[in-house]
Amino acid sequence: MSTPLATAIAPDLGAPASSPSLILARGLTKRFGEFTAVDAIDFDVAPGESFGFLGPNGAGKTSTMRMIGCVSPLSGGTLQILGLDPEAHGPQIRARLGVVPQQDTLDTELTVRENLLIYGRYFGLSRAECATRADELLEFAQLGERAGDQVERLSGGMKRRLTIARSLINEPDVLLLDEPTTGLDPQARHLLWDRLYRLKQRGVTLVLTTHYMDEAEQLCDRLVVMDKAKIVAEGSPRSLIEQYSTREVTELRFAPGVQETLDGQLDGLAERIERLPDRVLLYADDGEAAVAAAHARGLQPEQVLVRRSSLEDVFLRLTGRSLIE
């Protein structure tokens, strides 16, 4: 069996029987001089799971991914990948990973197909094997017609797809994706999600970082929210919403100047109330009831929106609304 996508269904664990995790981190720490980028985090990734690191820029997601990718040494704690220690077995672990870095690292001088061929060679595959897999992956990434084009001429979305195709050339046990769709237009993002979803269905273990909530909801079975180098929450998208938000959120917008005069009039309308500069958010399981209660108090919002709680509400609650830069 040699299709890159099919063999990944049954990951060859090679891990000790005591550890069913593909990735196991305890007290994982990364420091750059005085700065602590990752502060003693613990997590496990099970075979076939789709696991996400969610967090604002600078939360420590990429540093964590680079340690998992065995290209950045640990400053503390322990990390096991496929049952192996990255410090002692970096090249052996990397042989079984697929990596989609945040910034493209394609060789823009070479053609689309050549990029796949040479990458296969890095894993020690024969030229014939590289050619077979390259053709399958071009198909998968919908790049068959561009096979002979120089990479420089591809769009951003095509380059991303090529990077993902390239990361699959060694039939990896784990695919690491660092912000796979950042900077892409909606069409390109949806096409990419579709491809990643297919991989997930085929049983490939995905580990990804993102700051897009819709991406996390679409792709992740389980995720951790990182903020300021630490994990602040963990669970499935649904359970995180249940735990950190209400079922529904009601957004009220008032005429200019009115919101500031509402002192006290909103209290008790919902489990939690958040005042933003331009609107008020009411967190309540029954949004319509909250609206009715507001009207009953004589409040007259100009706009009312009742929606389901999303991961974004959880994210903003946990990591705050102020811009971190």
């Binding site: 290209v71 090249p91 990973l97 990596v99 870095p101 690292t105 823009t108 001088e109 890095y122 894993f123």
Partner: peptide, 14 residues
């Protein structure tokens, strides 16, 4: 620029 060495380094190449 192209960061191809980083791509190599993500494989068993050191």
């Amino acid at each position: 620029w192209s960061r191809t060495f980083h791509a190599m380094h993500a494989t068993p190449i050191d």
